[in-house]
Design a protein around this nucleic acid. Sequence first.
DNA 1: CTGTTAGCGCCTTCAA
DNA 2: TTGAAGGCGCTAACAG
Lengths: 324, 324
Amino acid sequence: MRDVAQLARVSAMTVSRVLKDDPGVSGATRKRVLTAVKELGYRRNETARSLRLGGSGMIGLVVTNLANPFYSRLALGVQEVAAEQGMRVLLSNTAEQTDRERDLVEDLASHRVEGMIVVPAGSRQEHLAQTMTSMPMVLAARPPAGIDTDCVLVDDFDGAREATAQLLADGHRDLGFLGNPPALYTGAERFRGFWAAHEELGLEPDEHRVRRGLVDIATAEAAAKDVLGGPSAPTALFCTNNRITQGAVRAVRRLGLQTALAGFDNFELADVLGLPLTIVSYDADEIGRQATRLLIDRIKNGTENQQPTRRVVVPTTVIRYGAL
Amino acid sequence: MRDVAQLARVSAMTVSRVLKDDPGVSGATRKRVLTAVKELGYRRNETARSLRLGGSGMIGLVVTNLANPFYSRLALGVQEVAAEQGMRVLLSNTAEQTDRERDLVEDLASHRVEGMIVVPAGSRQEHLAQTMTSMPMVLAARPPAGIDTDCVLVDDFDGAREATAQLLADGHRDLGFLGNPPALYTGAERFRGFWAAHEELGLEPDEHRVRRGLVDIATAEAAAKDVLGGPSAPTALFCTNNRITQGAVRAVRRLGLQTALAGFDNFELADVLGLPLTIVSYDADEIGRQATRLLIDRIKNGTENQQPTRRVVVPTTVIRYGAL
DNA sequence: CTGTTAGCGCCTTCAA
DNA sequence: TTGAAGGCGCTAACAG
C-alpha cells in the first residue's frame, strides 16, 4: 500500500480511502491511485483489514458429510445468501465425528468467523456452548439439545406422517420401517410420524418390521433384505433418509421384488427407477438460506437487543413416482 | 492475551510461547498460563497471527458446481490432504461463470490464501495469470490453456476409448455420442477417445448420431430423445459425463427402450437401474488429494527452486452393469 | 480534500 | 527462562 501511495504521490490513507470507495477523494487523485494500483498489481490485504476492523467478514459452516447431496445443497444455499450480504463462507466437514466437530468449531472461532452454522453430528451439543458465548450460532437440520440457539428444521414429523398415510391409503397394511439412529432428532421425529399415520387409522405398526440405527447404504441394504426375507414380510417400506432409501432400492432390486418404497429426501433418477416410490421432498438450499438469514440477522444486531431463540421449519412435499 | 498474561502474572510474550509449544518455558509457568487461558476462555486470534507470520495457513479451492457430486468428492479429497498438512480450505463455487471465477480467485488472493486449486469454468484461463504471479496454483480436471500451471487430469481419452471399445466388442455398430461443449478439454478428449476406438476397428462414427454442447440433464435428455427418435437411431449411446448419462437414462426410460449406455463418471444406483450400462469410473477424491499434494509442495518450496510444470493423470476403470 | 498518529493482536528479535 | 520493543498492513479519529 505504501508503494502504491508513493507511486501515486499520495499518502497510504488516501489509497485506503480510494479502495474503500470513500466519497471524500477528488476525482483526479482517485484516478492516479487506481492507475498505480493496477500498475503494481496491488491487492488489499484482507487479513490486515480484518484485524483492524475487528470483523473477518466470514461465517463458518460445519456439515457432517459433504458427499451427501443434502449437505452440498445446503452449503450452496448458505453461500448464496452470504454472498448477497458480502460475506464469505468457511466450510468444514466433520465426517460425522463429534470430537472433530468440536475442534473444527474451535478452529473457525480462532479464525474469527462472525458466526457459525452447524449441522451437529451428535444428538446433543453441550460442547458448543463455550463457542456460543463469543458469537451467534445457528443449527441446521437438528434442534438444539443442551444449548439454546436458533435452528432451521425440516418438518420431519409431518413429512413422515403424510408419506406413511399415502401408503396406508393405497391399501398397504404391513409396513416396514428402516430408520437412522433413534437418538437423532430426525430419526425420532420421522418414526413418530410413521406411528402417528397408523394411529390415525386405528392401526399399530408391527415392531418386527422395524429396523433402526442404520447409518449408511450398506447397513440399510442389509436391514432391508433382512426384513423383506423375514416371516412377516412388509408390502411397503418407509425409509428415513436418502441413504437408507437407496439401500432399500438395492435390496428390492436384488430380491427381484416390487415392494413399494417411501422415504425422506428426493434423489436423482428416482423417477426412472421404475419402482413405486413415495418421496418426502424439501428444499435443502432453502434450509441453508434460512439458516444464513437467521445468523446474519444476529450478527448485525450484535450482542445488544437479544431476541428470543427462533425456530424455522421448512415444509415438505410428498412426490409419488410410479412403477414402470 | 494481555488479560491471560495478567492473570498468570507473566508477560504476553510468555503466553504466546506457551500457546505455540515453545520449549523455553518452565513447567510451572506453563501450567499457570494454561490455567488462565482456560479460566478466561481465551482463544488465540488467528487473524492477527496470520498477519504477523505472513501466511494464513489456508488454501483456496474454486469449483464450478458443488451440487455435482464429482466436485464435492474432489473437495473432500482436498480437505483431507490439507488437514494432514495443517492447512484449512476456503471453498468457493463459481456456478460455471468465468467472470465470477475471476472475482472469487481475486477474493481468495486478497484473503492471503497460500495457494489455490481451481476447476476452471471456461476453456482458457488467461484471467488467472495475474493471480498466479503471487501464489502457486493447480488446475484440476482441466489442463491449463493460456497459462502455465501444474494440473491433475483424468485419463479422458483412454477412458472414453476403452468404454467405446467395449460397446463395439459387444457388437454394437451404430453408436451415438452425447457430449459436453467441444471447446472444453474433457469434451474434446472424450470425443477423441470415442473416435479412436472406432478407428482401431477400421470404423468411422456417423456424425448424424453425434450431439455436442450439452450442459445439463435437461439438454442431454432432449438430445437423447432426438437421436433415438431419428432415422438412423443408435443401438448404444456414449455420454461424456454424469449429467449427460442421467439425461440419457431418462430418455431411454421414457421411450421404453433398452438402449445400451456408456458414460463417464459413476453414480449412485447405477447398478440397480436395470439398464445395460458401461461406466468410466475414477476416484474424484484422488484428484483432489493429488492436486493438494502438488500445491502444498509448491507452497513449501517457496519461489526459489522452481520445478518445471507437472501434470498428473488419474487412471480410469471401466465398470459394467447389466440389464435386469 | 488529504495527511499524521496510533493501535488492532500477535510474534521475531534482542536484551536481561 | 522471561520480558521489552517494534512492526506485520490496514484504517478510525483527528488534524490541517
